[in-house]
Write a protein that binds this DNA or RNA. Sequence first.
DNA 1: TCAGTACATGTACGAATGTACTAATTTGTC
DNA 2: GACAAATTAGTACATTCGTACATGTACTGA
Lengths: 182, 182
Amino acid sequence: MNGARRNPEERRRRIIQAALELIPEVGVGGLTHRLVAARADVPLGATTYYFTSLDDLAHTALTAAAELTAEGLRSWAEALRTGPDLPATLATLIDDYLGDRSRMLIWNELYAAAGHRPELRPLAREWSDGLTRLLAGYVDHQTARAVAAFIDGILLHALIHDRPLAPGTVAGSLAALMTPPR
Amino acid sequence: MNGARRNPEERRRRIIQAALELIPEVGVGGLTHRLVAARADVPLGATTYYFTSLDDLAHTALTAAAELTAEGLRSWAEALRTGPDLPATLATLIDDYLGDRSRMLIWNELYAAAGHRPELRPLAREWSDGLTRLLAGYVDHQTARAVAAFIDGILLHALIHDRPLAPGTVAGSLAALMTPPR
DNA sequence: TCAGTACATGTACGAATGTACTAATTTGTC
DNA sequence: GACAAATTAGTACATTCGTACATGTACTGA
């Protein structure tokens, strides 16, 4: 008997999707073949058939997450291009981002995992570098790095605290950061 | 035979110390009784004798790390009290902090672990809240939170990038953040 | 001196893990 | 329809894990 119809690409996607769901719950290090297989509702053999190892699976899932991040950055770029006030628009975008807790948890897991898995560092840099590049279209490079770091700090802050920074405060701080010294 | 002389407190400290050494290398989730015991150079039985479970061991180690953090904050407070220029002094302190990579990795691991282990959140908040409290002695509370978030962002940034933000840039950004809007 | 307690250490064991592998089934190609 | 390749699914196995435990050793106080 063969329960599922054949659809290799779909299956691969489902497994990756299951891993992305699990990472916020158990962490990257908490992934196991069996856990992912159960969540994806595929037999254990499927996860080893589509991925050469568990590390490969985790890495692929995180790569997919980085791709989603890149998409997010493109929409940020679009919003900033059309938005009237740069700091206020950024603050709104950040506030929206804060609403997607699981995405933030994956992002943070990636950062932590990159700490002791050097092969993940380029992946972790994608968000940060992309954001810096984006901001560098509006302010000088050093300032762009500082603003990107500030935004990462706000996200991290929100992960730990019940109440994130108020968008008004964020907008004010961003304006201060991006305004050339008097 | 009994190789080690009796010294329960010393032994407990050694196990915690070993765990703190290992966390940057393998992550909180990568800790095992055997790994910690080997690093601490104690038999396997010792880690289960002194800690009721592996979670207990990890939690205790992270608590010890938080205590070190609290100590660090006290020395920051002292430096800020005597330092002439607030932003410049802060920038120097941050730059010093960046030199201790393993401490930063533990801090980041704690943040990530707190994401999917709620019981760790109070521990994770200690650094952030303490820093905010400290800064609140110099600027209003909202600004203090923003500056604390910025500092966390800088640390995170440094974990992922080869070159951290230049202290000069950091000092300038801090000054901008802490200066009331014109 | 002599219990009684705290500490030390090695071993045991069930559970869970990563991965390999066999066998069955579907799909594409001639 | 026949055949090879790809996919599916279940199982097996060595390894590692957390934890319990039995046994032994050092300390403490009366």
